[in-house]
């Protein structure tokens, strides 16, 4: 009798997945940067899992059954969108969780409402691995992180209305921290977040600050944060391996004069390498930048040949040991670029 009872209980457990309930919402994200944003705005109300690691190329993640298992009991799924994660569809199909499917209320795209860069004018594979909706590496502009977090907060409030106040509060804190970290406290106090963002998005922030005064003091003196830290590198020419850095380039007024890949996702050809060499010499490029998951060996060889530096930048949270959250990611990126410039 006892054996039968145990057997029945085990069967029920296996069939209906009765487990220990965790009151926290299970938020699953497609990458670690999104997971970091989710932790910022979700706080203790959420438990966050990332399907990929920061050292992985977010375009190519194996949609294994183990990942499918992660989403079966997810309360909310948060992905970048803009066709960055073609593999996610397989994971969601395999996860059989109707509430987080694309289009469902517990599915959130981080990219909603973000102005895309590099939207292709033609959709053809002859242009390489292009993304129809534009360059998807949106998280590399701190302003976009605020929109990404806002999208997530809307999703969290849909699935957990009781937590709305907490999510709003934490979102406001995250937003304020981003503002101070990016522009500095003084500038935010003078111009406010909205006007700083408007100027930054227009590409004219520094020009405006240099041309205007407040209380007899040039506004540029009020600039702080990462934006000030990166001012010495303004208009610096760089070569990048892949088109990962378009948003970072615009956020800090950098200039990417060439890519090692002839077209996105296409391995470098000898003619492209030769072109890149010429560009490095002509523009006196101080660094070739690459994410850690690309062919770093090739980047280093090219840098040695052209007497420039190879800088492996973390392209997302978790891409190196120091980039543990959204803020340390940008500290790390800016530190590495400045160190390179100094060297």
């Amino acid at each position: 009798m006892r054996v039968h009872l145990w057997f029945t209980m085990a069967t029920l457990l296996l069939t209906f997945g009765v487990g220990l309930a965790d009151e926290r919402l299970k938020v699953v994200t497609s990458n670690e940067t999104l997971a970091a944003v989710a932790r910022e705005v979700g706080g203790d109300r959420v438990e966050v899992f990332s399907l990929s690691r920061g050292v992985e190329d977010p375009h190519y993640v194996s949609p294994t059954p183990s990942l499918m298992l992660q989403v079966t009991d997810a309360d909310l799924f948060f992905e970048n969108g803009m066709e960055l994660e073609c593999w996610v569809e397989r994971v969601l199909d395999g996860g059989r969780n109707a509430k987080i499917r694309r289009g469902a209320k517990a599915h959130v795209y981080a990219c909603a409402g973000i102005s895309p860069l590099e939207v292709p004018s033609t959709l053809s594979r002859s242009e390489g691995c292009i993304h129809a909706h534009g360059n998807p590496h949106i998280w590399l502009d701190p302003i976009n992180a605020k929109t990404m977090a806002a999208n997530l907060v809307e999703g969290l409030k849909r699935v957990d209305p009781e937590g709305s106040e907490v999510y709003d509060q934490r979102y406001a804190q995250f937003r304020a921290r981003i503002d101070v970290a990016f522009y500095g406290r003084d500038l935010i106090e003078v111009l406010g977040s909205e006007y700083c963002d408007r100027l930054q998005r227009s590409g004219g922030l520094i020009e405006f600050l240099e041309a205007h005064e407040y209380k007899g003091r040039s506004l540029i003196e009020s600039l702080g944060g990462w934006r000030k830290k990166m001012l010495p590198l303004r208009d610096m020419n760089l070569v990048a391996y892949h088109q990962t850095w378009a948003y970072l380039r615009d956020a800090f007024d950098l200039d990417v004069v060439a890519h090692v890949e002839p077209k996105p996702g296409i391995s470098p050809t000898p003619s492209q390498i030769s072109l890149v060499r010429r560009m490095i010499e002509r523009h006196e490029v101080p660094a070739i930048i690459s994410a850690p998951y690309y062919d770093v060996g090739k980047v280093r060889t090219l840098a040695e040949e052209t007497k420039t530096n190879a800088v492996v930048l973390p392209s997302g949270v978790g891409a190196d040991a120091a980039s543990v959250d959204y803020f340390s990611l940008f500290e790390r990126i800016t530190d590495l670029l400045l160190e390179n410039a100094r060297s």
Partner: peptide, 14 residues
């Protein structure tokens, strides 16, 4: 006034 200028400037640049 400064903020209005900022808005106008950003619109122009945009």
């Amino acid at each position: 006034k400064l903020r209005r200028k900022a808005a106008e400037f950003s619109e122009k640049k945009k």
